[in-house]
């Protein structure tokens, strides 16, 4: 398992990206999907996921939908129009960040 601290600042971007690909998702589904995609490398903790989701919802980036599934209610999250725009921005920021980190940890020297 990798260093979870390194992923911490990227939680919102990860959530937004997943929702951009999956129309609507519920909390538990997000944790499982991340586990599956990263082959267990990244485990989103419950104590971090819900505060992040509620924050994104309050910022107007996510919309909620509630449906009765079996004998319980399920809260689904989906991107709002603003959320879709913000996802693009956050992903761009993430790419920049990755590029910068790459340069720092693995600099390529050229003879130019």
């Amino acid at each position: 398992m990798g260093n979870q601290k390194l992923y911490k600042g990227s939680l919102q971007t990860i959530i937004l990206k997943l929702l951009a690909q999956n129309d609507k998702m519920y909390g538990y589904e997000i944790t499982q999907k991340v586990k599956e995609l990263t082959k267990g490398e990244l485990k989103i903790t419950e104590g971090a996921l819900y505060p992040a989701l509620h924050k994104l919802e309050a910022e107007g980036l996510l919309d909620v939908e509630v449906a009765k599934v079996g004998n319980r209610l399920r809260k689904y999250y989906k991107l709002t129009e603003n959320g879709t725009k913000e996802t693009a921005n956050k992903l761009e920021e993430m790419q920049e960040f990755l590029k910068t980190m790459q340069q720092l940890v693995n600099p390529k020297f050229s003879l130019e």
Binding site: Y28, E46, V66, R72, L73, K75
Partner: peptide
């Protein structure tokens, strides 16, 4: 409660 109950139930 509702959101947490669904989470616990799934888990």
């Amino acid at each position: 409660q509702t959101e947490l109950v669904d989470h616990l139930a799934n888990d």
